[in-house]
Design a protein around this nucleic acid. Sequence first.
DNA 1: TAATCGTGGCC
DNA 2: TGGCCAAGATT
Length: 291
Amino acid sequence: MSLVDLQRTIIDWYAGAQRDLPWRRADCSPWGIFVSEVMLQQTPVVRVEPVWHEWMSRWPTPTALAASPSGEAVRAWGRLGYPRRALRLHGAATAMVDRHDGEVPSNLEELQALPGVGTYTAAAVAAFAFGARVPVVDTNVRRVHARAVTGVEHAAPSLSRAESDLAAELLPTDPDAARVWNVAVMELGALICTARGPRCDECPVRETCAWVRAGRPAYDGPPRRGQAWAGTDRQVRGRLLQLLRDSADPVPREQLEQVWDDELQRERCLDGLVSDGLVEPLQDNRFRLPG
DNA sequence: TAATCGTGGCC
DNA sequence: TGGCCAAGATT
């Protein structure tokens, strides 16, 4: 199967299988796409969708978000996880107001200069919001390429130069095809070519997939890092912040002390939240989300 | 470069 | 039951 055939096969599959997500609709603004991309960093679609609608209703433009206190962004973030993303989103909105006339910038350099925007998000916004012909490489895309082309079950823990080069080679030359290709490969990874239990029998490229042809060999690369949780600072930070999110008024220190027994760890985490800008200490030994 | 940073659902 | 995973960024 030629490269063009592979591209057409996946693009055709996408036409019939794509999910109807609000940030994919033609009337979605670049700001809406930008917000969705940040929310989707490490957070599943089903959890993002309701919060995204709330944000779009409350803050339909970068200017609107920048006019609210950063703590309101953290509160409205709810339980999406990694709340520093909310702070960075607020910072990005402020930067758009200060440097880009209140608009989402369209080129990669300006996008990546915004807080919370790395290689992936810059490419995704440039491609999905502005139609730029740039390879968009996320964990789904990396897995599809690893299986369909390279013939291994999982991509390596970190993005390699070879993977980036491969993604650039696979991107269709035609701009219209390139636009669909990026989202189509991502969707294939999200719906069919999943990390666990891939649905190879439903896959449009099962006949040519290098991993399937090799007999679906088990992963043989370096160990993939797990994510410890119980007893970690992340758990403590999560509890502290949840208390502050759920309280309309500033919270006394004694109340925060009840979410975790280990005083040393608790204080370290509270200090960390303050230095991160997620929590604001008041004069009277109370704490709140930044005002 | 590797560690850190939330949260919840799934097999 | 619990390890694994989800459209990563930052330091």
